[in-house]
C-alpha cells in the first residue's frame, strides 16, 4: 500500500479508537505504530508524548504529527494528522446533526462507563511497560526523578509543562555529570 495512504488509514483507526484524552490513545498507538508497523520505538512514543504536553495543541494531534514526520517527512506529518482527526469530523457531525440527546442515552452512559474501565486497564499495561524500559533499568537518580514527578503531578497538581521543563534540566545536570565521570575514568 502507498505509504501516505497507510499513514492516513492507520491514524484514522487510532483516532476512531481513542476514548477520552490523549493518554487513552497510547495503548492503541503502541499496538498499531510500534508493534504492527514498526514506524517508531516505544522510547520515541514516550518522547513525543512528553513534548506533546508542552507544545501547543491537542496531544493526540501532536503525537500523530511526530510519528508521521518521522516516517515520511513533513507531508507524512500532515497526512497522519489529517487521519487522526477524520473520524471525529464524521462522528461528531452525524451526532450534532441527528442525535442531539446522544450523551443522555442510558445505553451510551453505561457503555462508556465500561469503556473507561477498559481504558484504565490498558493504560495500566502501558505504564508497566514504560516503567520497565524507562525507569527500572536506569539506576537510582532516574527512579527518584520518577517518584518526584509522580507525586508532584498527582498529589500537588503541579502543571505538566513545569514538570517536563524541570525534568529536562535534571536530565541535563545528571546526564552530563555521568558522562563526565565516564570520560575521566
Amino acid at each position: 500500500m502507498n505509504l501516505y495512504l497507510d499513514l492516513f488509514c492507520t491514524f484514522a483507526r487510532i483516532g476512531g479508537l481513542t476514548f477520552g484524552g490523549g493518554y487513552a490513545m497510547l495503548p492503541i498507538l503502541e499496538k498499531e505504530v510500534v508493534e504492527n508497523k514498526g514506524w517508531c520505538s516505544e522510547e520515541d512514543l514516550t518522547d513525543y508524548y512528553a513534548i506533546g504536553q508542552c507544545t501547543p495543541g491537542v496531544i493526540a494531534v501532536n503525537t500523530a504529527t511526530f510519528v508521521g514526520e518521522k516516517k515520511a517527512g513533513k507531508p507524512g506529518g500532515i497526512v497522519a494528522t489529517l487521519g487522526v482527526v477524520a473520524p471525529s469530523l464524521v462522528i461528531i457531525t452525524v451526532i450534532a446533526a441527528f442525535l442531539r440527546n446522544f450523551a443522555d442515552n442510558p445505553y451510551v452512559i453505561h457503555a462508556f462507563s465500561g469503556i473507561r474501565v477498559a481504558v484504565t486497564v490498558l493504560v495500566l499495561n502501558t505504564v508497566i511497560k514504560l516503567l520497565k524500559s524507562n525507569v527500572l533499568k536506569k539506576g537510582l537518580p532516574t527512579l527518584i526523578l520518577f517518584c518526584l514527578v509522580l507525586a508532584a503531578s498527582f498529589f500537588l497538581g503541579i502543571s505538566s509543562i513545569a514538570l517536563v521543563v524541570a525534568a529536562m534540566i535534571w536530565g541535563l545536570f545528571f546526564g552530563l555529570a555521568i558522562h563526565k565521570k565516564e570520560v575521566s575514568a
Partner: peptide, 16 residues
C-alpha cells in the same frame, strides 16, 4: 542528556 530526564518524567505523568 535532556531526554534521559524527559523519559522518566513522561512515564511519571502517564502514571499520574
Amino acid at each position: 542528556a535532556v531526554f534521559g530526564g524527559l523519559r522518566p518524567a513522561s512515564t511519571a505523568l502517564i502514571a499520574a
